[in-house]
Design a protein around this nucleic acid. Sequence first.
DNA 1: ATAATTACTACTAATATGATAGGATTAGTA
DNA 2: TACTAATCCTATCATATTAGTAGTAATTAT
Lengths: 146, 146
Amino acid sequence: MKISTRSRYGSRLMLELALNYGKGPVFLRDIAKNEEISEKYLSQIVIPLKAKGLITSFRGMNGGYVLAKSPSQINLREIVELLEGGLELLGCIGNSSTCSRVAICVTRDIWDLVGKKIAQILESVTLEDLIKSHNLKNEEAMIYSI
Amino acid sequence: MKISTRSRYGSRLMLELALNYGKGPVFLRDIAKNEEISEKYLSQIVIPLKAKGLITSFRGMNGGYVLAKSPSQINLREIVELLEGGLELLGCIGNSSTCSRVAICVTRDIWDLVGKKIAQILESVTLEDLIKSHNLKNEEAMIYSI
DNA sequence: ATAATTACTACTAATATGATAGGATTAGTA
DNA sequence: TACTAATCCTATCATATTAGTAGTAATTAT
């Protein structure tokens, strides 16, 4: 039960955009460099994010990406649910026809609950929260480096 | 972010043993039949469960498996953590040397938190709880089938 | 024009997962 | 002792998923 690199990279990409919110579009190239992620791979991750309206893109020279909403209006659940392809921990939760034992299965109920809890936690964290944590971490790093 | 079949099968196997607690060892063959799971596959899942001391096995004719502790003393976290190979949602949480960005990475903190919450929830559910839910579900099923 | 960017499509390599196969070992029973 | 039914052990296989690459087309500021 690990989260995919897609989700992780996607979250980091979104944080990067959040940090640049209001400063005009950001090149994928720069994000890729900052975050040490393959630009080509990021260019795939960006597609669903755009399709869902979380980011806006500008093509051509001086193009790039911007957050479609303010950082406080985007939470981690939206991002992760999208890139992970749902937050259900079992196939039979979204689609109960995948297993004939749904009516009997007790463990399924537990996993349903856990999945909903995860969604709750992720929903409670906005990109703005991440920015704050990020700034805090950077200050700490500054202090330690003196 | 799905849970593996190993964990799911393992949980169901453990519930099956819990339902037979105090009635002597159960054959893998019977569990496999009841739960509609390949016996050979179950025989692999059983190994770590035994190694961790959650179940005891008896070899030879009239052998089988029993819970090593009472159902109230075994919780889902133990089972899932074992079969899933840890409850960390990221490799860099257990082993921080896998990523050079640990000190900067904000999203990692979130995933750390989520993982701990999952562990909490799973820890709060014992096999005894599952037995109760199971009996309840069976009663319901009886009523509906009249 | 041209240069720099996103958009699109296909492919590949590596890894993990789920499952199977077959025999070795153990122990109860006749 | 021979037989049988169970666990134990090791290897293998097939499939799916994941992570990542490659190349080209479309778009737009200069």
